[in-house]
Write a protein that binds this DNA or RNA. Structure first.
Lengths: 254, 254
DNA sequence: CTAGAACCTCCCCCTGCGGCCGGTTCAACC
DNA sequence: GGTTGAACCGGCCGCAGGGGGAGGTTCTAG
């Protein structure tokens, strides 16, 4: 039993699959792409794997277990000049890659956890409102840094939800009044519109607390994404875009 | 300028792509799979996107930004009965999925960091030896729990590398002696082989510190993966397999 | 000798698009 | 009204890593 045929065992593809824990399909795939060719074939074409092939398969599995691509695995195994240096570099690169992917996943998890808190927390019964919030959040994330968002959230919490609602109501009134001036083509240096815009800015300042970069980000966001942000409001995006342009002219005039 | 055509704007595919930051190709893909159909077409077949389409696109983007698949996004947007419950369930499922992926990545990073420490640390100049170690590590990870591996590593550190080398040398001597008995068909209850096996077990116990589950895991590992583990040793896998079977019989006889 | 398991080669399928091809069509300018 | 360059159309191939199946041979145990 011990010390038998020195020519070594041969494995059929099914035997090798079972012995190594990969599927037959995978072995055929590896054969096809040249990563692990069957060392021999029977006269009729059946694959015969040798001990060398078995060794190679174990190495392939080990390298795959590090998350390397099949190409990378092939590169490591075929460059017989696989200096430890090259290996170290490859592993370091792989580590960086994994770190990045972990960061992406952490970002997604943060977003989802935030949304779940909102959903579990207070009222969010209207799916449409939820979707609108979702759109706004994704836009917010593109324009404000995490710190800015955090400070905005803190500020909202400080103000309390009734104050936020009051601000929204006051802002709606300002919009109506200003739209009247837009339609009436009131000159941008009229003291009445100047006063309205001052109140407008005061409301904004209550949220961004005088941080000019946050305010600028908000303006850029509005400029680029007015249409979505206007959703749920009783005015059309075009109307609001015109309004914002008008307010801008008022600011520059003042 | 303000308050123009109530029928609403239309966007060509290129305009919508630029406005929303996705590529033309992506929009065509969404159209093709039915996720975001252009609400209208010109007589000649060019896509005309409406405001509804724009809204839908923003929702698609928002949901994609949570890592949902296109199918999941379509499900959320098309099930008009998108109760907050369903949304919560979907997000919770997504979160679990992400957690699992994060765990996988963390596992890969651990492995790679461990390997890099080995590479950077003491001698590992031979790439072949490195690969062999790699194979063994991946097999180890399949058989020992993380705690068991940690305790094995601690134990090795306690013993020191010279003690480990000494153990290996002694073990090699035992193997040679036992192989002689195998060839000579010494009965399994012969006191001489019983003594050799006792010494064999003592060496093992020095590592697994008497933890029977760790020892059992090691035996299962050897039974399943003898060939790879035997790599780098001066005996063939067949030889060692026969030896292990003999040692088992000696144990049972004792 | 025969049945059934195992094996073979093609081929299409999945995700989420990127990219190219050959052929319309649009929009602006002359 | 004509021209011309940009935009647009559908269709097809490609990617990573195989899954799964069709239809046809071959192996192997009884």
């Amino acid at each position: 039993m011990i010390g038998k045929d020195r020519a070594g065992r041969r494995w059929s593809i099914g035997e090798l699959a079972e012995a190594s824990g990969v599927t037959v399909r995978t072995l055929r795939h590896y054969d096809e792409i040249g990563l692990l060719r069957a060392g021999e074939r029977t006269a009729s074409g059946h694959r015969r794997y040798t001990e060398r092939d078995l060794r190679r398969l174990y190495r392939v599995r080990a390298l795959r277990a590090l998350g390397l691509s099949l190409d990378e695995v092939a590169g490591v195994l075929d460059d017989s000049g696989d200096e430890p240096e090259a290996m170290r570099a490859l592993l370091a690169a792989q580590l960086r890659d994994l770190e990045e992917r972990a960061g992406q996943i952490a970002l997604l998890m943060d977003r989802i956890q935030g949304l779940l808190r909102r959903l579990d927390g207070r009222s969010m019964p209207d799916p449409d409102q939820f979707m609108t919030t979702l759109e706004m959040i994704s836009v917010f994330e593109a324009y404000f840094t995490p710190e800015q968002r955090e400070r905005l959230a803190e500020r909202r919490a400080e103000l309390g939800s009734e104050a936020v609602d009051a601000a929204r109501t006051e802002w709606a009134g300002l919009v109506e009044e200003l739209l009247g001036h837009v339609r009436a083509d009131t000159p941008v240096d009229d003291p009445r519109v100047r006063d309205l815009v001052r109140r407008w800015d005061t409301i904004g300042a209550a949220f961004h607390a005088g941080d000019e970069r946050t305010a600028g980000a908000a303006r850029r966001m509005w400029r680029d994404h007015g249409p979505e942000l206007a959703r749920g409001l009783p005015w059309s995006a075009d109307l609001l875009n015109g309004l914002v342009a008008y307010v801008d002219r008022v600011r520059r005039a003042g």
